[in-house]
Design a protein around this nucleic acid. Sequence first.
DNA 1: GATATTTACGTCCGCCGTAACTATT
DNA 2: AATAGTTACGGCGGACGTAAATATC
Lengths: 325, 325
Amino acid sequence: MKLQQLRYLAAIVENDLNITAAAERLHTSQPGVSKQLKQLEDELGFPIFLRQGRTLTRVTPAGKRVIDRAQKILKEVQSIKRLADEQKGDGRGSLAIGTTHTQARYVLPQVIRRFRERYPDVELHLHQGTSEQIADMAARDRIDFAINTGSQELFTNLVLLPCYRWHRRIVVPQGHPLASEGKVTIEMLGKYPIVTYVFGFSGPSSLQQIFARHGITPQVALTARDADVIKTYVRLGMGVGIVASMAMDPREDSDLVSIDASHLFPAHSTWAGFHQGALLRSYMYDFLQLLAPHLTRRLVDRAGNAATPSDVEALFTDVELPVYR
Amino acid sequence: MKLQQLRYLAAIVENDLNITAAAERLHTSQPGVSKQLKQLEDELGFPIFLRQGRTLTRVTPAGKRVIDRAQKILKEVQSIKRLADEQKGDGRGSLAIGTTHTQARYVLPQVIRRFRERYPDVELHLHQGTSEQIADMAARDRIDFAINTGSQELFTNLVLLPCYRWHRRIVVPQGHPLASEGKVTIEMLGKYPIVTYVFGFSGPSSLQQIFARHGITPQVALTARDADVIKTYVRLGMGVGIVASMAMDPREDSDLVSIDASHLFPAHSTWAGFHQGALLRSYMYDFLQLLAPHLTRRLVDRAGNAATPSDVEALFTDVELPVYR
DNA sequence: GATATTTACGTCCGCCGTAACTATT
DNA sequence: AATAGTTACGGCGGACGTAAATATC
């Protein structure tokens, strides 16, 4: 019997006996969870779950008792970890983050909610700004982590950990002609006024260049610094919006239609950076992993100890980053 | 954090912070325990034990709290296992063993004491007899396990698992001339009357042949079936006893002197046998492992599934058996 | 056909044991 | 010298992920 098996068991129960969902929550593969459950049941010698064919349907009476004890065990394990945090003074402390609107508004809220559950006494400081402002905060040592998209060249003194990649989505009001098209093209976009971020004015991924490659000049109706402003003006019918995919909330934005545009614009990479050689407190490692599950303590330490930026990159060549599309 | 680490931690505490003793109790290596402890402490980020140089001296206050929780966890784990036993009906059942005097009198008592702690409701039947009688019990399916020394040829229908090897010791009253000799030789033995088991009368390991190789005829004063009888007559001064090393109890036999004779007589191998294909209950696996720690469930299963006796042997070629000397 | 789970298989990490070394009595 | 613990290292089992098969709806 291993703790891992008990964790998997608890996750399966948490996810209503759906092994696939449990595996996702655990950031591992579904066959792995399936196998560990089977091993546990084999070791115990009786089934924890009833099955209909291959689907788990119910918990057996004996299984219920195992689950209760497993949860008790996991709680004790947690309690040991808490204890360790207190001991190290890790329950207290502070975490200062510099980041952009998109991350602060759409990605970090969930991360921070889970972080606060785990570390209610860590002081959190969130500083929003442009890439340049964030770089400045980092240079002045005002922040522990910089979280930004692109602009790596501004942060040469930081260790940059790739977190996830994301695409843009096209946003239109319900009933807009584009909403009923299959795959949107640059040509189709060119027919409507555009409401979007301040795309770079030069460089191969600037809005101008991308349209120019199709021989089209975009009609930019409005450029904003953040997606909320963009969505607001799309709602007012000022034009077709182009926003980060994370900025679309299925519930809040149910009055809008958003369309995959991953084939039109290149993907963006969001990364988290910290000063090389900085001593990370354990809650900082945990924060990073909440932000991007592949950022294990191991990996972060290796990156922090890497000699050159290209050594850091090498660590991530085999890692598949999450993609928001 | 792994359950293994918590088990090791508990064992260290149980053994008064002596890592070596803990490792022995756990039937594993000392460096392994040492390393796991260090890993646990590293993960927690603070020491569980205080050290003077390399020796563990005391438990830190925080360590105490970790230990308490670890013990709670291990208790819950135990409770899950008990639950599994009940579920399978393994708390109840019976275990019938056929064995010889030496095992029944000197080896099994400790094994059975620990077994009863774990399985108070399993009915135990211990049948003492000669090898032939045990073979007969096995043939009639009266016993689950046969435990015997040598005589493999009588048990060709059983899967035989080597348990341990043992040597004979020479037993004399205090003050006997042999007690003050360094290394006893066959020649020296030849000068005294011998009190021993019924050695085989033919075969290369018979008492006669071994003495004959040195050109000596032993003066056998008495042959008995068991060590208790032999020790009784040694106490009466009838001669020099030769008994199994396990038969000597430091406390009970403090009035006798026993001398290593492993260089004079070949080692004996005690094995445990069961019918090939028999379905072993989990308490039976546990019994075997209490008898001989290397008999893990894995190994026993493999032996039970082996096609031929030589396949079984092959499983044990790399296993180092305990030796009583 | 789509979804969910198991089976099969290859890779790689980490546990364990041996041996050598170091510290302590 | 003997005892206790750590470091170093090789072997091997087992966990994990990918891919394919299978069952269920």
